[in-house]
Amino acid sequence: MRIGELARRAGVSTRALRYYEQQGLLPARRSTNGYREYDESDLKLVSEIRSLITVGFTLEDARPFVECLRAGNDAGSACPESVEVYRRKLAEIDEQIHTLLGRRAEVAAQLADACPGCALRTGGTK
């Protein structure tokens, strides 16, 4: 398939596909007329990249998953390097949560000082 079809089927722009190619995540095979040619395995690579980006991974984070798929595994998470990226990302998220909870406690304390009778709402911004 050509780049436009891959972009349509993967739900990304052709520009994104060219960028993935530039970053070494998506192989670019060329036909005799110079057009990029892709197959179903490339669709799987792009889908893996997009699903990781959607939940906050970077393109560099996605690299081990792509390499795992390219090595013939059914899932990008089947390799130890991918599992390590998951662990690192969870640790980052845990640290962000810890930081946000600390900030929340500080803002709640400031609100209590500024408005002793104000009720502190939890669970949203209504």
Rank of each mutant, 00 (worst) to 15 (best):
L26I: 11
A10Q: 03
A16S: 15
L26S: 08
N73E: 15
K89M: 05
E95T: 08
A78H: 13
G72H: 09
V83C: 04
E95P: 00
G4C: 11
Q23L: 14
Q96C: 04
A62R: 01
R63Y: 03
A62N: 06
E95Q: 14
V107F: 13
T125G: 01
Q110Y: 06
C79V: 09
F65W: 10
Y38L: 09
S51T: 13
L90G: 00
D61A: 05
A78V: 11
F57L: 15
P116N: 11
R30L: 14
L120N: 06
R8A: 14
D42N: 10
A109N: 14
A71Q: 14
D113C: 06
F65Y: 15
R104N: 06
L17I: 08
Y20S: 01
L6G: 00
L52E: 03
E92W: 09
Q23A: 12
D39P: 01
A114F: 08
T14D: 03
Q110A: 14
G117C: 03
D94I: 02
V66D: 04
R63D: 05
T125V: 07
K126H: 07
V55A: 10
R121I: 07
T125I: 06
R15T: 08
G102D: 12
H98C: 07
L43C: 12
Y86R: 06
R36H: 11
R15H: 10
Y20M: 04
Q110T: 00
T58K: 06
C79G: 11
P116H: 11
L111N: 02
G4I: 08
L59Q: 05
V46R: 01
R30E: 07
H98N: 11
Y35S: 06
V66N: 04
T54A: 13
A16H: 04
A78Q: 14
T58L: 06
Y38D: 08
Q23K: 14
D94E: 15
A28L: 13
A62M: 09
M1F: 12
S82P: 00
E48A: 11
L25Y: 10
G117F: 01
L25C: 09
R50P: 00
V46W: 01
A16M: 15
K44D: 11
E21A: 14
V66W: 01
S31T: 05
R8Y: 02
L100D: 03
A112C: 03
I3T: 11
C79N: 11
K44P: 01
T99H: 14
K126V: 04
G11L: 12
P80W: 09
A119F: 04
S13N: 12
A105F: 05
V107C: 03
G24N: 05
G34R: 14
V66K: 01
L101Y: 03
R2M: 08
T58Y: 05
R8K: 15
S13V: 01
R50G: 01
R30K: 15
C115S: 12
V85I: 15
V46Q: 02
D74S: 14
G123Q: 05
G124N: 02
Y19C: 01
V107S: 02
E5K: 13
A75M: 11
R30G: 07
R103A: 07
R30N: 09
G4R: 12
L120G: 08
V85Y: 02
L90R: 09
A112R: 15
Y35A: 07
A108P: 00
D74R: 15
K44E: 12
R36W: 10
G34T: 08
L17Q: 03
L111W: 06
D61K: 05
